[in-house]
């Protein structure tokens, strides 16, 4: 007899999400400390970030979160075809986010603004801390986005071939939970990095 426990699986996923929250929590703690020591310099440095790109990425991520949530509804209603379409939209959003980030980072690196660069060493301490945090936090977030993308791709294939279906979709739910976590973190990163000018 096969043992199956969907609630247990979901509980496991949630506990894993807690560890992820605290992983980023360590970084937000560093942010809080640095921000309290260098608040004006953080304001100045934030001017170098493009709030417009940040906003677009926020919108893109929110949409992708909604489509994942909807894909669960679709599978629950037995409409795997729609679920596939919704997951593809999610992945496209993820790709759009990455492309945006590529240009954003690429521009900064091009003008020599990255940890350890000569330009960075001419900046004030607070600004160095801001950019270091910016790269570390968005970098780690991006890593999670890529992992989430891979998970959702696997889920997508399983929805496509029917392994995930009306009667058994906990994998989709867990993949979705992970994706929402990525969104959740961005919800805090966006105002703390882009909107403090």
């Amino acid at each position: 007899m096969e043992h199956r426990d969907d609630i247990g699986a979901k509980l496991g996923m949630w506990v894993f999400i807690f560890t992820e929250i605290l992983l980023f929590g360590g970084l937000f703690l560093v942010y809080a400390i640095m921000r309290s020591s260098y608040s004006t310099e953080f304001h100045q440095a934030a001017h170098h970030l493009n709030a417009f790109i940040g906003t677009i990425n926020t919108v893109v991520l929110l949409i992708s979160s909604a489509t994942v949530a909807m894909s669960i509804t679709a599978v629950q209603k037995g409409n795997n075809k729609l679920a596939v379409i919704l997951l593809v939209i999610t992945l496209l959003c993820a790709a759009a986010f990455m492309i945006n980030k590529y240009f954003e980072w690429g521009h900064k690196i091009h003008i020599g603004l990255y940890p350890g660069s000569d330009l960075m060493l001419t900046l004030s301490h607070g600004q160095v801390m801001f950019f270091s945090l910016y790269y570390f936090m968005t970098g780690l977030h991006m890593f999670h986005l890529v992992v989430g993308g891979i998970i959702l791709t696997i889920v997508l294939i399983k929805v496509q071939n029917g392994t995930i279906n009306e009667g058994r979709y906990v994998l989709l739910e867990n993949g979705g939970l992970y994706w929402h976590l990525v969104d959740l973190i961005w919800i805090f990163l966006f105002p703390l990095l882009y909107l403090i000018t």
């Binding site: 560093v30 400390i33 640095m34 020591s37 260098y38 940890p115 350890g116 004030s124 301490h125 607070g126 160095v128 801390m129 270091s132 945090l133 790269y135 570390f136």
Partner: peptide, 14 residues
């Protein structure tokens, strides 16, 4: 590897 400097006083870290 990258000199992010969170803990390096010479870069403003603590």
């Amino acid at each position: 590897w990258l000199r992010i400097g969170f803990f390096d006083p010479s870069l403003g870290g603590d």
